[in-house]
Design a protein around this nucleic acid. Structure first.
Length: 884
RNA sequence: GGACACAUAGCUCAGUUGGUUAGAGCGUUCGAUUCACAUUCGAAAGGUCGUAGGUUCGAAUCCUAUUGUGUCCACCA
C-alpha cells in the first residue's frame, strides 16, 4: 500500500531540468524578488568563464563552491545574488580562432581576412561558445541571476573600460612609453609578465671576447644579441675588473657600426658566475634595459625585429636571418677570429607565451602602460599602495574596507608579489578586445582620449585622425568585473545595494592575473574594495596527481558525468575532500560514492513517505516518547550547529561529512530501524526529514527540492529557512550510546560465531546499574540484535560466551556450538588492549608533574576514565576464566 | 637562489587554538537478498601520523634539522 509512487532508485536526469526551470520561473535567483524581509546582501561575482571553450571540471568545481555558498546564504535569509557572465578572453580567443583557421588552410588569417573579417569569425566562435557555457552553468544547478547576465565585451562593460581608461589617462596613470616588453613573434603581440610560462630548456653558454684587446671575457646563452651590446657590467668589488669601470672600448663584431662598450659597475653581478662580467644588451633584456635607464649614456641598439629576424643594425652578415641562424653564424665568426674561448652545457629558464605558445623575445617598443608607482592626483597614493592597503589596514585606512584572504598564507604571497610589481603593459597588438580609446592627429601628432569617433583634432583642428590600432589586455576589462556588472559607471541601485561584493572564489593560479587587477581597478575607480572575502581554492587533478589536460587526454566531461550520475552527485563529489588552497584529486569512484549517497537520501525519503499517514511539513518540534527520539533530536541539533559552523568557515567538505554521518549512520541505520520497532513516529520522521532536506539543499539542490515538493510543501525549498537549534533532552546521548554498544556487541558475537542473521538467539546480560535502562529498551535490543530471549540476571550463565560493552556483560547462550579457541583469542586481545589503555591512564595519573601542571578538567577526565576501564577489564578476565 | 604547501590505513583525504584508545570514504576479509534502498545491510582486519632531534606533565599538532613531492617567484648573464 505505497502512498507514494516514487521509483526505487533516484533518477536525476528525469527531474533536474524541470526543477531548474521551476526555480527560474520563481524569479528567486534575483535577490530583489526574494520573499520576506531580507536586510543583508550576500553577493558573489561569478568569475566569468572564457569563451574559448566549453565548461570543464574546474568550472564545475567553482560552480559547486559558489552555489553551495549562495544557497546557504539565501536560506539564512539574505538577499543572495550571483552575477553570472562570460569573458571574451582577448588573446586566448583570438589565438584559438587563428589556429582553427590555419587548420582550415589559411596561412595568415590576419592578412587574408583583414580586421573586420577576422573579428567576424572570432565573434561567431565566441557567441557559439558563450551559449554552450551558459547552458552548462544551468546544468550545474547554479542559482545565478540571469537577468543580470554580463559579458566582458558587451556594451555596458565596454563603457566601463573606456571610462576607467579616460580617468587613468587624465590622471597620468596610463602612459605611452618606450620600454623593453615581452613579444610573441607567433602572436605578433606583447604579453604581460604574468602571462608567461617559464620552462627549463637545455642550452649552451658561450664564453668569448669582443676583441683581442678587450680586457674582459664575457659569457652568454644568446650570442646573437651581443651584436647589440653597449656595455659590460662588472661587480664594483671585483678586483679583476674594477679598474676598468668607466672606460669605453670600441669593438667591431660585425654589426652595422662598431660597438662602443662602456664598462659599468653593477652590484647585482655575481663575480663567481660565468666570467664574472655581463655583456649588457639594453634592447633585448629587461634587466639590461634597467641598467640603461640608470645610465642612458651607454646607448641602446635593437638588433632583433618583431618578425624574430635580425635587423640591419646587426650588420650585413646577419640582417634578415632568424635568430637561431644568426647565433650559429656569429659563434662561427668568433671561432674564426680566435675570440671564442669555450662553451658549456647549461639549462636556461625561458619565458614562453601562455596563449600563443612560442618563446617570447624581449624587444624595446612603444606601448601603453599603467603606472603603479605614480601618486594618484589628489589622493596622494600610488596604485601599489592601494593594492597593499586593501588587504592590510583596509582601503583608505578604513578597517571596514578590508579584504580577507582564505587561507591566510596567500595573504603573504600577495604582498610579496605587490612589492615586486612593475608597470602593467596593457596594450596588445591583437584585434579581439577593447580598442584603445585614443586618437592620433596625423598633422600635429597630438593624441587624446575619445570614447567615440572624434570629428577633429582637439589641438590643431585637423580632420586627419586615426585610432590607436591596439586593444587592451583582457584583464583590464575583467578587472572591472565586480562593479561593471552592477552598472558602473552609472550610479545604479545595484551598486549601492550589492557592492562591494561579499565573497569571491578563485583558483590560486589567477591571484596575480585577476585578483590584483580587480583590487587595483576597484580601489582606483570606485574608491572601494571589490569584495570582502576571497576564498582561494586549489586545482583538481586526476587520480594519479597529474593535471587534467587536453594533451594528456585525461579530461572528464562534466556533462557526461551529470548524465550518468546526476548533478547533485557531481557537486558532492567535487567538494569531497577539498580544503581551501589545496589541490584535490577527482575520479569517477568519488562520483559513484556521491551518487550512492544521493540514492540513500532518496530511499530514506521514500520510506518515510510510504510509511506516514499523511506526508506534510512539520515545523514544530514534535513531542518525544522514547530514548531514541531524544537521542536523534539531540544529534540533529548537534549536526545543525556543527554544519552551520563549518559552512561559516567555508569548510564545505567537512560540513558535508557531518551531514553524511548524521543522515546515513544515525538517521538511516539506527533511527529508522528503531522506528520500525517502536512505531508511531510520523511527526518525528517528517520533522527530521524536513530538516535534513534543508541542510542538504546547498549541496544537493535538485533532489532536495524534488523531495520537498513530495513532502507537500507549497513554497520552494530554495527560499526556505535554514534550520535553527531547538531545546531537547541532552542527557539521552550516553544512555543511547550504551544501547548502541550493546547491540553492536551482540551482532559482533553473532558474526564471530557465524550465526546466521535469520537465527534468533538467547542473550543474558549482567546489567548492574543499567538494569532499568536495558529493561526499558529491550525491544530495540531484541529486534536489532536478532534476540529471541533477553534475560537480565546477576550472575553469569553456564557455558555462554561473553563480551563487555556499554558498561554491561553480555552472554550469548550457545553452549557447545562455540569455537572456544576463537573466543579465547578475541578475549585475550581485548584484555591486552584494555590493559594498555588502563596503564596509559595510570602512568599519567601517577606522574606528579601531570597532576600538578595539567588543567584540572583534563586530570579529572583521566580519573573518570579509570573506573569503567578497570571494571571492563575485570569482567573480561572473568569471562576468559570461565572459558577454561 | 628565495618563498610557500604537502607527506597520517592498500588508495583518496579529514584531524579547528597541543590533552578521545588518531577518524571517514573507497578497497580488502567474513556473513546476509520478501518486508525503503545490493546504488543495500551487519561484522571485522588494517596506521609506532616521512626521518632525526628539541620544547612540554603531555606532540600527528609547536620549534629545529633532514629527506621526498608539488607550486609560485627571482634569475643564471
Amino acid at each position: 500500500m505505497p502512498k507514494t509512487d516514487l521509483p526505487k532508485a533516484y533518477n536525476a536526469a528525469e527531474i533536474e531540468d524541470k526543477i531548474y526551470q521551476k526555480w527560474e520561473e520563481s524569479g528567486y535567483f534575483n535577490p530583489d524578488k526574494l520573499p520576506g524581509e531580507r536586510a543583508e546582501s550576500f553577493v558573489i561575482s561569478m568569475p566569468p568563464p572564457n569563451v574559448t571553450g566549453v565548461l570543464h571540471l574546474g568550472h564545475a568545481f567553482e560552480n559547486a563552491l559558489m552555489d553551495i555558498e549562495i544557497r546557504y546564504q539565501r536560506l539564512l535569509g539574505k538577499r543572495a545574488l550571483i552575477v553570472p557572465g562570460t569573458d571574451h578572453a582577448a588573446i586566448a580567443t583570438q589565438a584559438r580562432v587563428e589556429d582553427e583557421l590555419k587548420k582550415q588552410g589559411f596561412v595568415n588569417p590576419r592578412k587574408e581576412l583583414g580586421r573586420e573579417g577576422l573579428l567576424k569569425k572570432i565573434k561567431e566562435f565566441a557567441d557559439n561558445h558563450k551559449s554552450i557555457i551558459l547552458g552548462q552553468i544551468k546544468k550545474m544547478g547554479t542559482s545565478c541571476d540571469w537577468s543580470r547576465l554580463a559579458y566582458t565585451f558587451d556594451e555596458s562593460r565596454s563603457e566601463a573600460v573606456n571610462e576607467i581608461f579616460r580617468r587613468m589617462f587624465e590622471d597620468g596613470l596610463i602612459y605611452r612609453g618606450y620600454r623593453v616588453i615581452n613579444w610573441s613573434v607567433k602572436g605578433q603581440s606583447t604579453c604581460s609578465d604574468d602571462e608567461l610560462v617559464y620552462v627549463d630548456q637545455p642550452a649552451k653558454i658561450w664564453y668569448f671576447k669582443y676583441s683581442h684587446d678587450f680586457p674582459i671575457p664575457i659569457a652568454t646563452t644568446r650570442p646573437e644579441t651581443k651584436l647589440g651590446d653597449t656595455a659590460v657590467a662588472v661587480n664594483p668589488d671585483d678586483a679583476r675588473y674594477k679598474q676598468y669601470i668607466g672606460q669605453k672600448f670600441t669593438v667591431d663584431v660585425g654589426a652595422a657600426k662598431p660597438l662602443i662598450i662602456t664598462i659599468i659597475g653593477a652590484g647585482a653581478v655575481d663575480p663567481d658566475y660565468g666570467t664574472g662580467a655581463v655583456g649588457v644588451t639594453p634592447a633585448h633584456s629587461a634587466i639590461d634595459y634597467e641598467m640603461y635607464l640608470n645610465n642612458k649614456d651607454i646607448g641602446i641598439i635593437p638588433v632583433i625585429g618583431q618578425d624574430g629576424k635580425m635587423l640591419s643594425a646587426a650588420g650585413p652578415a646577419y640582417a634578415g636571418l632568424p635568430v637561431l641562424e644568426a647565433r650559429g653564424k656569429f659563434v662561427q665568426w668568433l671561432k674564426d677570429q680566435g675570440l671564442y674561448i669555450k662553451e658549456e652545457e647549461t639549462t636556461h629558464n625561458v619565458g614562453s607565451s601562455d596563449r600563443f605558445g612560442d618563446i617570447v623575445e624581449a624587444l624595446p617598443m612603444e606601448q601603453w602602460f599603467v603606472d603603479v608607482n605614480k601618486k594618484i592626483p589628489e589622493r596622494g597614493k600610488t596604485l601599489k599602495e592601494l593594492l597593499r592597503e586593501a588587504v592590510t589596514v583596509g582601503h583608505d585606512e578604513n578597517a571596514d574596507k578590508i579584504i580577507k584572504i582564505a587561507p591566510e598564507r596567500f595573504h603573504n604571497s600577495y604582498l610579496q608579489r605587490i612589492d615586486n610589481l612593475y608597470d602593467w603593459c596593457v596594450s596588445r597588438q591583437i584585434w579581439w578586445g577593447h580598442r584603445i580609446p585614443v586618437w592620433y592627429c596625423d598633422d600635429c601628432q597630438h593624441y587624446f582620449y575619445s570614447s567615440d569617433t572624434p570629428s577633429d583634432c582637439l589641438k590643431c583642428g585637423s580632420k586627419k585622425l586615426h585610432q590607436d590600432e591596439d586593444t587592451l589586455d583582457t584583464w583590464f576589462s575583467s578587472g572591472t568585473w565586480t562593479f561593471s556588472t552592477l552598472g558602473w559607471p552609472a550610479e545604479t541601485d545595484d551598486l549601492l545595494k550589492y557592492h562591494p561584493t561579499t565573497w569571491m572564489q578563485m583558483g590560486y593560479e589567477i591571484i596575480f592575473l585577476w585578483m590584483v587587477r580587480m583590487i587595483l581597478l576597484s580601489t582606483y575607480a570606485l574608491d572601494d574594495i571589490p569584495f570582502k572575502n576571497v576564498y582561494i581554492h586549489g586545482m583538481l587533478r586526476a587520480k594519479d596527481g597529474r593535471k587534467f589536460s587536453k594533451s594528456l587526454g585525461n579530461g572528464l566531461d562534466p556533462l557526461e558525468i551529470i548524465e550518468k550520475y546526476g548533478t547533485d552527485a557531481l557537486r558532492l563529489s567535487l567538494i569531497k575532500g577539498v580544503t581551501a588552497g589545496n589541490d584535490s584529486r577527482f575520479y569517477e569512484e568519488k562520483v559513484e560514492g556521491a551518487r550512492n549517497f544521493v540514492n540513500k537520501l532518496w530511499n530514506i525519503s521514500r520510506y518515510i513517505l510510504q510509511t506516514v499517514a499523511q506526508p506534510r511539513l512539520i515545523e514544530e518540534v514534535p513531542a518525544t516518547r522514547t530514548l531514541a527520539d531524544d537521542w536523534i533530536l539531540s544529534r540533529l541539533n548537534e549536526t545543525t550547529a556543527a554544519t552551520t559552523a563549518e559552512l561559516d568557515k567555508y569548510n564545505f567538505s567537512s560540513a558535508g561529512e557531518l551531514l553524511h554521518e548524521f543522515t546515513w549512520s544515525d538517521f538511516a541505520d539506527w533511527y529508522l530501524e528503531i522506528a520500525k520497532v517502536e512505531g508511531a513516529k510520523d511527526e518525528l520522521l517528517l520533522f527530521i526529514l524536513q530538516k535534513i532536506l534543508k541542510l542538504w539543499h546547498p549541496f544537493c539542490p535538485f533532489i532536495t527540492e524534488h523531495l520537498w515538493n513530495e513532502l507537500g510543501a507549497k513554497n520552494l525549498l530554495l527560499v526556505a529557512a535554514w534550520p535553527k537549534n531547538f531545546a531537547v533532552d541532552i542527557g539521552a546521548g550516553a544512555d543511547f550510546q550504551s544501547i548502541k554498544d550493546i547491540i553492536t556487541s551482540i551482532r559482533n558475537l553473532r558474526g564471530e560465531n557465524k550465526i546466521e542473521p535469520a537465527k534468533l538467539v538467547t542473550i543474558s546480560i549482567i546489567a548492574g546499574d543499567k538494569t532499568e535502562l536495558i529493561k526499558k529498551e529491550q525491544n530495540i535490543i531484541k529486534k536489532l540484535g536478532r534476540v529471541e530471549n533477553l534475560i537480565i540476571k546477576n550472575n553469569k550463565p553456564e557455558g555462554g560466551i561473553g563480551a563487555v560493552a556499554g558498561g554491561v556483560e553480555i552472554y550469548l547462550d550457545l553452549a557447545g556450538l562455540v569455537d572456544v579457541e576463537t573466543e579465547k583469542k578475541r578475549l585475550a586481545k581485548e584484555i591486552s588492549e584494555t590493559e594498555k589503555y588502563l596503564s596509559g591512564i595510570a602512568i599519567k595519573l601517577n606522574n606528579q608533574e601531570f597532576v600538578a601542571n595539567a588543567p584540572e578538567e583534563i586530570v579529572l577526565k583521566e580519573k573518570e576514565k579509570m573506573e569503567p576501564a578497570q571494571e571492563k577489564l575485570d569482567k573480561l578476565k572473568n569471562q576468559l576464566d570461565s572459558l577454561k
